[in-house]
Design a binder for these strands. Structure first.
Lengths: 372, 372
DNA sequence: CTCGGCCGTGTGCGCGTTAACATGGCGCGA
DNA sequence: TCGCGCCATGTTAACGCGCACACGGCCGAG
């Protein structure tokens, strides 16, 4: 790996046309075709642009940085030269001198899941809008060591700030131990004391779901939870519990899940066996899918015999049998806001650890009805 | 944005302890706690490490680059100093001088989908293993302009190579126009002439699915396609067609889909209305979900009346009603291989445009039975 | 004539890499 | 025991590339 001098940038195969500067007469040929008139094998630098445009490197710099005192005509000449050479600033050199890499890092667990993937997407779009690059680091496991590993990796890449999508207790704990002087934003990060957090209001969402079922006349609502160490799971459970309490309804024992359809199926089998179960709030849509199947197999009709509400509103939810009433989370908005918050921290690390809450929304479909 | 001199790296708040070099006696205190003994407000550089370790910066460099001729003891002293200062190489400076950024870019459309997300995950893990960073760029739309935009963005970040996950015809076309001297690997890239490609064998997968249905005694198999401009959709259709031909079975007209459950539902309604439909190969699992529901609503039992096979094996497929027989794609393997191929191109751009094929696998569950 | 707009020249800086070379110490064979 | 040669390190310096600052000069307007 210590191979000497070997630029892996954009390098034309063998463009050694030494007579390359004179023919500036045809600058506006076809733009899309790759032009080959670089002086040497290395990518063009600012001085190359300057030479071609007949100006100084300083002027090129002024153009690139939108310095006001450059004549329009000069600006154009430089722009043409830039395009001609397909010049792009060497981001390494730029980063080195400015001290800011224009890159942010995103740490995430399992971008295969709908929620994290959508959030990441939102972050990426917003980042590009703001002129930032996005580097990613996935967590191999959901423990502290993995967080530290991912963090180290992003730090080695010298990102300017980090957004962490990994809403579990161990991860939230790990974040506490990071240097407080580095800009970090947590998504769904629980009550992490000193960290800015963007989160969907899980508690309210769970209340919405539970209340919706109660409003249809159910005496109480059962609950299939998410995994214990996920903060969202805890919040949804407490929202459910709060709604029941507020309504004076008895809280039945919860059934433990782990987000997977398998767990929902298992819970569904248990619940289907009891006649007194008429309403279930399942902590996410995937588990609801499993539960729906268990109910179906047991001959319990949804919603006629049992009503079900999920959480997330995955794209498939509308095509479950029956179409699932669920709580929608605006992940794209979460992504946008977390980036905004990070950028804000980027130039002023001060300020309180802001906490932004995105409201959830109930999507009523066909899995809820009055009790039989 | 042209704010002068403002290092956004790891900087302690106000660590101006000028008496910081003498206390080298306690080097092995608690490792996790953030130590504050940097001379100035800026992150430590190599010379700082050298000074603390009592060696020259050259030696530090030798240690970092695993140069053989450094005594074990010296190596350790340097290592301790590095840890003490929490030194990390300035990646910008390193990139600037070595000419390689140790970063690869991934262009992807809709990482919200299971396939792309899984592939990205595989790439990321493999990249980290190989000491590379991963920068992402999502496509806003699936046209050429978006590809160029994403490409430009990654080039501006000076990535060393790019993997494109975007298996549609327009995207594949756009890739043809990229400078051939830059390392690019396409995932599911179709027959892109000059590009290395890693792909799951869609044709074989479709044959597997179709044959599986024929083997159960169905006279023929209907097909719900993916969107027309997706290469995978075309391959699956031709695999289906080939299997039918090989078996001498008549090929019914296809039903157009777009990957969405909604489209599957629509197709399902059409098919449910015909008595002669006993077997359907649906181009992906999400559409199969919609189709399953349409069948159910129409009173056509799966698999008793109609058999269904999907494609992808999303995590939910095992919990559809009934559990879906489908074709599994090893996305993680695709990710790994595409990275391997890219790395290979990175140091030798020559060589033919290799094409790696990952075999698919049929996962038999409960949605297939002999015809009634 | 002076001031301001426009642009050029020149230089230092950031930080890690690498080459070229110098140095002192040690082991080993003659 | 002398001397050669290698090992481990230090010293010095030159990049790579863009940014920023300090000037200096030119030209046209007031």
């Amino acid at each position: 790996m210590p191979g000497p001098r070997d630029p892996s940038g954009v390098a034309a195969p063998k463009p050694d046309r030494t007579t390359a500067k004179a023919d500036r007469a045809v600058p506006e040929a076809d733009r899309t075709a790759p032009k080959v008139d670089r002086p040497s094998g290395r990518p063009p630098a600012m001085t190359d642009v300057a030479r071609l445009a007949g100006v100084s490197h300083q002027t090129v710099s002024r153009v690139l940085n939108n310095h006001p005192s450059v004549r329009e005509a000069t600006r154009d000449r430089v722009a043409v030269a830039i395009q001609e050479l397909e010049y792009r600033r060497n981001s390494a050199a730029r980063t080195l001198v400015t001290g800011r890499s224009q890159t942010i890092g995103v740490i995430s667990f399992d971008t295969t899941l709908y929620g994290p993937a959508s959030t990441l997407f939102g972050i990426e779009l917003a980042a590009r809008e703001a002129g930032y690059f996005v580097a990613i680091a996935s967590l191999k496991a959901i423990d502290r060591a993995s967080v530290v590993e991912a963090y180290e990796m992003l730090m080695n890449q010298s990102v300017g700030g980090i957004i962490v999508i990994a809403p579990t207790a161990p991860v939230a704990m790990a974040l506490q131990n990071l240097p407080p002087s580095f800009p970090v934003v947590a998504v769904e990060g629980g009550a992490a004391a000193s960290l800015p957090v963007v989160a969907v209001d899980q508690v309210t969402g769970a209340k919405l779901a539970t209340q919706h079922l109660l409003d249809h006349g159910h005496r109480t609502v059962w609950h299939v939870t998410g995994p214990g160490d996920w903060l969202e799971a805890a919040d949804r459970e407490s929202g459910w519990r709060a709604a029941l309490e507020a309504a004076g309804a008895p809280a039945p024992p919860t059934l433990d899940g782990d987000w997977s359809p398998r767990a929902g199926y298992a819970a569904g089998r248990m619940l289907a066996a009891r006649d007194d179960v008429t309403a279930v709030f399942v902590a996410n849509d995937q588990m609801a899918l499993g539960l729906l199947r268990a109910m179906h197999e047991a001959g319990r009709r949804v919603p006629n015999d049992v009503s079900v509400v999920g959480f997330d509103d995955v794209p498939e939810a509308a095509y479950f049998m029956p179409p699932l009433t669920t709580i929608r989370q605006d992940f794209a908005e979460v992504g946008r806001r977390s980036l905004a918050l990070l950028l804000q921290r980027l130039d002023s690390l001060s300020g309180p650890a802001e906490r932004q809450i995105v409201p959830p929304e109930l999507v009523a479909r066909d899995s809820v009805a009055p009790p039989p």
